Simulated scan of single mutants.
Amino acid sequence: MPLKDTIDAAIKQAMLAKDRVRLTALRSIKSQIMLAETAEGASTGSLSPDAELKLLNKAAKQRRDAATIYKEQFRSELEENELAELAIIEEFLPQQLSQEELEGRLVEIIQRVGAQGPSDLGKVMGVAARELSGQADGSRISQVVNLLLNNTNF
C-alpha cells in the first residue's frame, strides 16, 4: 500500500481518537507528500518508495534538529512536542540499525571498496549512503565511518 494511503488511514484513526499530536504529525507528512507529488518535474503524480523514504527521513531529521534547538533554549514543552512527532514519523520508517549492526555493515563496505584511511571517506560514504538509506541517519553513518577510517585496525 502506498505511503499516502497508509497516512490517510492513520489520519482517520487519529481524528477518531482525538489525538492532536498524532494528527498534526500525520497531516504534516501528508502535506509533504502532496507537495512532492505536485512539484515541478514530478513525472507520475505518485512517489516511488525511495522518494517516500527520503521524504520521511527528511521530516524525521527536521523534528530531531528542532528538538535539539529547543533543548538548547530550555523550551522543554516544544522539545517534547517535536520528539512526540518524531516518534510518530519513525513508525513509518524502516527499523534503524543498532550501533553494532551499523559498524559491522560499514566495516564490510570499507573492505569491499578497499578504503585505506580518512582520504577514502568520500568513496565509502557514497556506497554507505546508498546501501544504508533509511536504516541509519546520514550524520550517524558519517561519524562511524570517520571513526573506523581513523582507526586502522578494522
Rank of each mutant, 00 (worst) to 15 (best):
K4T: 12
D5A: 15
T6R: 13
D8L: 14
A10K: 07
A10I: 07
Q13D: 12
A14Q: 07
L16Y: 10
A17E: 15
K18E: 12
K18W: 07
R22T: 14
A25I: 07
S28F: 08
S31D: 14
Q32E: 15
M34K: 15
A39Q: 14
A42N: 15
A42G: 13
T44W: 11
P49I: 11
D50E: 15
A60Y: 03
Q62H: 08
Q62Y: 08
A66D: 13
A67R: 01
A67Y: 00
E72Q: 12
F74I: 02
F74C: 00
F74Q: 05
E79L: 05
A87T: 05
I88T: 06
I89N: 04
E90R: 14
F92M: 10
L93W: 09
L97G: 03
S98G: 15
E100G: 05
R105P: 04
R105S: 11
E108T: 11
I109P: 00
I110F: 00
R112P: 04
R112W: 06
R112M: 08
G114H: 05
Q116H: 11
G117E: 03
P118S: 06
D120G: 01
D120R: 03
G122P: 05
K123G: 06
K123F: 08
G126R: 11
A128T: 00
A129K: 10
R130C: 07
R130V: 10
G134L: 03
D137N: 05
G138V: 01
R140L: 04
V144K: 02
L148I: 01
N150P: 03
